[in-house]
């Protein structure tokens, strides 16, 4: 079984934010929620680089470990998903996540968080595949359609790669070798320590 991973090539990302827009559109994500975002370091200066980042679907996922209601699960393909029926919006996964992936709609009074929302690797959630409920809560289930995440599929510079981790890293290695430089598979050390799947 393939182990799904994201890889963003900082040497290629041009900060066009198309991945962000594609994600929002594909899953009909409400205002204020960003399952994916593009971060630019050294903006406007020498050495400017951009990274598109979302949930990295970590091996030993911190969100899963700290969730008080145990609403997360990891699929056979390594995709970290959660149940919005169980989620209470406590914010713990956000405190634990190294990548700032969990998002919360603000509902009700104070800063009270609604059900957590995050990147699903376009793999839906615990509801039946292609059901309305699944789409409403988690967005499109492209993996079940045999497609890969839209953000990476439509990345114009192919900076963002998504798919079988072995294939993705082979492509990236190839790039590094051919162009002679690269900044490493960003975030992989954190998300998959020891190269574990």
């Amino acid at each position: 079984m393939a182990r799904m991973k994201f890889l963003c090539d900082a040497e290629r990302c041009i900060e066009c934010n198309a991945c962000v827009t594609a994600c929002k559109n594909e899953h009909e994500i409400p205002w204020g929620i960003n399952r994916r975002r593009v971060v630019t370091i050294n903006d406007g200066n020498e050495g400017e680089r951009s990274i598109s980042v979302a949930c990295m679907h970590c091996s030993d996922a911190p969100c899963m470990a700290v969730c008080p209601v145990d609403c997360f699960y990891q699929t056979e393909e390594g995709v970290v998903l959660h149940s919005k029926d169980l989620c209470i919006g406590c914010g713990y996964c956000f405190y634990a996540c190294p990548f700032g992936a969990p998002q919360y709609p603000q509902v009700g009074n104070f800063g009270s968080r609604g059900k957590m929302d995050k990147c699903t690797f376009c793999a839906g959630g615990p509801e039946d595949n292609f059901s309305d409920a699944e789409f409403q809560k988690y967005g499109r289930n492209r993996l079940a359609e045999g497609k890969l995440p839209l953000c990476a599929e439509m990345c114009s510079t192919k900076a963002l790669l998504a798919g079988d981790g072995d294939v993705v890293s082979a492509i990236y290695r190839e790039r590094i070798v051919s162009r002679g430089f690269g900044s490493g598979a960003w975030g992989w050390g954190k998300a998959y320590p020891g190269g574990a799947s």
């Binding site: 934010n17 962000v20 204020g32 960003n34 975002r37 593009v38 971060v39 630019t40 370091i41 050294n42 903006d43 990274i51 980042v53 911190p62 470990a65 700290v66 405190y95 634990a96 996540c97 190294p98 990548f99 700032g100 975030g187 954190k190």
Partner: peptide
């Protein structure tokens, strides 16, 4: 880093403190 979305906190790519908290 910088982000174009309103939540500027999202400019942090990695917060390793999360691991300590966990």
């Amino acid at each position: 880093g910088t982000v174009s979305i309103p939540d500027k906190k999202a400019g942090v790519l990695v917060q390793s403190e999360g691991e300590n908290w966990r």
